[in-house]
């Protein structure tokens, strides 16, 4: 039995790693080698693709821009979603269930629907082509997500925790920051990661709302599609690099995800 439980995640990870290995593999090849033959590892090992990315400012600024608006977005989403989720999980008010479900409908329409309204709005108030514009537009689908995830975790915390804290003489802010937030740290970790991720991979809104100054990396990548076909080597190198920041984020929140929930805090 012990052996089997180890096997399932291992097999799954191997399955996950194969395409990623192929991506990394391709990133060290020239485009000709990728299209020309089947090779398990690069025959003509080249770092040229990476050199291109790190020396060309339009490439690496793409990463900086993406990281900036993704970070802003994650912070805004969490700050807004925490109180909202608390209200949904602890209070009953008129239409709360419907409002809660309505939040999610914002995620149902493809972002393409909102691209034009956002474009006009942000152009009108001079936010076009700024980090904050992209960050705010991504809130559209990240805040509902964060509220839903956090609400799930908050409802998992027994109400007695709130009540004992009040009996112990905590005021609401004290309780919220000192007891409640640590209790749902796992949820915050997951929510932060998902906000980061969905904002990171979103292409359409980010592309529509930016022109020159804050062009995100995913939009820069579309440049590799030229009349001569895909520049696959460059595209895979850029793809490999997009994984890196996210991997760091998950590395830092991993402890929150795996921490579990301490019931006996008193």
């Amino acid at each position: 039995m012990k052996k089997i439980t180890w096997l399932i995640p291992t097999v799954y990870i191997v399955f996950l790693m194969m395409p990623i290995y192929w991506l990394v593999n391709m990133s060290f090849k020239t485009t000709n080698e990728i299209l020309g033959s089947f090779t398990l590892w690069p025959n003509n090992f080249t770092v040229e693709n990476y050199v291109t990315i790190f020396t060309d400012p339009t490439w690496f600024m793409g990463y900086v821009n993406s990281l900036t608006y993704v970070t802003i977005n994650t912070i805004i989403s969490l700050l807004v979603a925490l109180p909202a989720a608390y209200a949904f999980s602890r209070y009953r008010f008129l239409g709360d269930k419907h409002l809660f479900f309505w939040l999610l409908t914002n995620r149902m329409a493809p972002p393409a629907v909102f691209a034009l309204p956002f474009f006009q709005l942000y152009s009108a108030i001079g936010l076009f082509d700024t980090h904050i514009a992209v960050a705010l537009s991504h809130c559209l689908f990240n805040i509902p997500l964060a509220v839903w995830i956090l609400e799930g975790f908050m409802s998992g915390v027994p109400k007695e925790l709130d009540e004992t804290a009040y009996i112990d003489g905590y005021s609401f802010p004290q309780f919220f920051f000192k007891i409640f937030i640590p209790a749902i740290a796992a949820g915050i970790g997951v929510a932060a990661f998902f906000c980061f991720m969905f904002s990171w991979v979103e292409l359409l809104l980010a592309k529509t709302l930016t022109a020159v100054d804050v062009k995100p990396i995913a939009a820069t990548m579309t440049r590799t599609v030229s009349t001569a076909g895909y520049e696959l080597g460059l595209l895979s190198a850029a793809g490999t690099l997009t994984i890196v920041p996210g991997a760091f984020v998950i590395y830092f929140v991993r402890n929150y995800i795996a921490k579990g929930f301490a019931l006996g805090r008193l």
């Binding site: 995640p9 799954y12 990870i13 996950l16 790693m17 395409p19 990623i20 192929w22 991506l23 391709m26 990661f193 991720m197 990171w200 991979v201 292409l203 990396i217 995913a218 990548m221 579309t222 895909y230 696959l232 595209l235 895979s236 850029a238 793809g239 997009t242 994984i243 920041p245 996210g246 991997a247 998950i250 590395y251 991993r254 995800i257 795996a258």
Partner: peptide, 20 residues
């Protein structure tokens, strides 16, 4: 496990299509 499993989620969608 967590880090490796999160990797596919972090690849922009157009790259996912191209690499597959």
């Amino acid at each position: 496990c967590l880090v490796l499993m999160a990797l596919p989620l972090l690849i922009p969608w157009n790259v996912v299509g191209a690499m597959w």
